[in-house]
């Protein structure tokens, strides 16, 4: 299978108070299309930074990132934004819905950004899939946390991404709601054949992916296939 994500010797250093702080160091891995992977590690280990670099939200200080064969390193922020719009979907711990837009409008935004027309029915269908067909005209503040995350899921899949990045997608939800969201993520992922990368503290959630990348102190300490991978393989 072709690789969708290829990181080689990626490092990230920040300047802080006149000193340089290395958050990621020599991280390399390749992820194949359609695969699922969890990035786990203690707080401050560099998980979120790694996710940001892999998704093209930031530029690596060293090394290279290829997303769907596109080298992100030399691209400007606007060029990377275009790549994200074409190929990437996001789910965040704190949902990150635009508070001034209704649920339906939030789902429509990625498609509108592409200049696509007649997208309302597609967005509505996605909301139906996540069980919020009748809440499309509600604003985020009028929805519960679980509902907001479901809108966020519908939005993430609206542009039919090749790869989905999820940052602690259940971190702000109670156990019951978390389970339902996780089911939804994996169902939609399977259905669309999307690659999934998620950052989590939750080992149970991590174990549902095909591969677990453990990092500590900015370095990969283990990269294991899970039982799911073995079963899938």
């Amino acid at each position: 299978m072709a690789s969708i994500l290829d990181l080689q010797s990626v490092g990230k250093t920040y300047q802080s108070g006149g000193r340089s702080l290395t958050v990621l160091d020599q991280v390399s891995f390749t992820l194949e299309e359609g695969a699922t992977m969890a990035i786990v590690g203690p707080s401050g280990s560099g998980k979120t930074t790694l996710l940001g670099l892999a998704a093209g939200l930031d530029r690596a200080s060293t090394g290279s990132v290829l997303l769907n064969g596109i080298a992100l390193d030399k691209m400007s922020e606007d060029q990377r934004a275009a790549v994200r719009n074409q190929h990437v979907g996001f789910i965040f711990q704190n949902f990150q819905l635009l508070p001034t837009l209704t649920a339906l409008e939030n789902v429509m935004v990625p498609l509108e950004l592409r200049g696509e027309r007649n997208i309302k029915s597609r967005a509505q269908a996605l909301l139906q899939k996540v069980g919020l067909a009748d809440r499309g005209h509600h604003y985020p503040l009028q929805l519960s946390g679980g509902e907001q995350q479901r809108v966020s899921l519908a939005r993430a899949f609206s542009n039919q991404p090749r790869i989905l990045f999820a940052d602690e997608p259940t971190g702000n939800l109670d156990a019951e709601t978390s389970d339902r969201i996780i089911e939804l993520i994996f169902d939609l992922n399977r259905e669309a054949g999307t690659t999934l990368v998620l950052v989590t503290h939750d080992s149970e959630l991590a174990s549902r992916t095909g591969r677990i990348l453990r990092i500590k102190g900015g370095r990969i300490v283990s990269d294991e296939a899970t039982l799911n991978q073995a079963l899938a393989g």
Binding site: L57, E77, D78, A81, A82, R84, N85, Q86, F90, Q96, L97, L98, V109, P110, L113, R114, R155, N159
Partner: peptide, 9 residues
């Protein structure tokens, strides 16, 4: 969020 979803600056 808009930038994340692909809006140019």
């Amino acid at each position: 969020i808009l930038r994340c979803l692909g809006a140019a600056g």
